[in-house]
Nucleic acid binder design. Sequence first.
DNA 1: TTTTATCGTATGTACTTACATAATACCAAT
DNA 2: ATTGGTATTATGTAAGTACATACGATAAAA
Lengths: 244, 244
Amino acid sequence: MKLSIDHKSPVPLHLQAETLLRKLIESPEYQSGKLLPIEIELAQQLGISRTTLRQALNKLVYEGLLIRKKGVGTRVLEQRSVSSKSKNWLSFSQEMQARGIVTRNFELHVSWVYPDERLAIFFGINTDKKILKLVRLRGKTDAPFVYFESYFHPNVGLTGEEDFTRPLYEMLEKEHAVIAAISKEEISAILADKFIAEKLEYEVGSPVLLRKRFVFGKAERPIEYNLGFYKADSFVYTVESERG
Amino acid sequence: MKLSIDHKSPVPLHLQAETLLRKLIESPEYQSGKLLPIEIELAQQLGISRTTLRQALNKLVYEGLLIRKKGVGTRVLEQRSVSSKSKNWLSFSQEMQARGIVTRNFELHVSWVYPDERLAIFFGINTDKKILKLVRLRGKTDAPFVYFESYFHPNVGLTGEEDFTRPLYEMLEKEHAVIAAISKEEISAILADKFIAEKLEYEVGSPVLLRKRFVFGKAERPIEYNLGFYKADSFVYTVESERG
DNA sequence: TTTTATCGTATGTACTTACATAATACCAAT
DNA sequence: ATTGGTATTATGTAAGTACATACGATAAAA
């Protein structure tokens, strides 16, 4: 495999090295356990210093993709792969439909807001760039059980005039050619504060399942950040996993 | 705060710097958002080079504990809680070990009990057949954060005299030729009752993440039912999924 | 008062050099 | 065949230097 780095590129050398290393890691040759090229040789081959290369290597080692041994070399860490039923993760409406639950929107609000710092970091934008915020209160026909706040990366191209009653990712795909490919979620338990209690017709201090979802398109580009506040008595999150 | 590094120590300077930085990160002074000492000054103060200090800083930034801005400085990002990835589901000890979290058992009880009806159904046995119940209170070295109750199918062959301080599924595999192949989990939010609050050194009514795990061996034969009650302020459940 | 330009600050990138250390290979001695 | 010593190999640690760049503060201009 021809390895090269573009010294004229504005992309920092250590980041290009990282990208290249990730490709090596993915190749069957190194997946099999063969040692990667030694640091000195690879650095020379790429025309960068060993320090710069190690900067990239350090990150991959820390990420658990590579393992190094003094006097031996570097190789790809064997990873046990696991298939998970959450592989076909869905938008809310698709999820509820799959469970046979008829739902409806109680509230829907679209607005443009400045992201806070954490959100700006996730999207890789400045805090002075407005982004689209979508608020929905949803539930079964008789009562709401989840309050959503979604924020979208500007590059998704949403105008605010889209039909948000449709399944979200279906609409993104059809109208904006944006594919929601990866979802990373954090599930935690909190207590309903006054605001959430009011929205969910719930008591202050009652248990709420907070579901933070980071949605990425192709090439792990962030497209959506989604918060879901679920009445705990109306919602259980399920996950099924298998050992590789 | 007096900052110092032992230049005579066998511990690498960058690791000592990392440890020190973690203490700074934990202190209320910097938790509030105040900028850390600038790199040049801190390096000089510690008697190490800026490069060595940056090695430690890089790790903490990558870990999401710190955020840096050119021309501005470095400060603490909101500290992330303990999380679990279902992608590689593991026993508790393996999970924590993978995260570099040192844990210990605060309590461990083994007993034989009659299953209730739901449990009997899950195991496919009668309610008059005693099963092994394992109770553990676990956490970081300073305080517990999760209370476990586990029940095992009689066919697993547990005697009650096993070493339950070892990683559970490893022990099952080695001593009973039982492979934990599939895990199905239900995550929900509840409030700490008197019993759980007492165990977790928590306040009654505080949020708790309840994690019910159904573990199956080969051919989907049930082998374990596990309840985990996690202090919500100490635990976030994470899931990563990809569209098929 | 607002806008623009400039400057200072602190981090980011990159390199070179030097030495330490763990693992392995090889060879000699038994 | 086994054991112990040595050399080689590749990573690990550390320092110092130089310059680039983003951010915020300040002053000048409009």
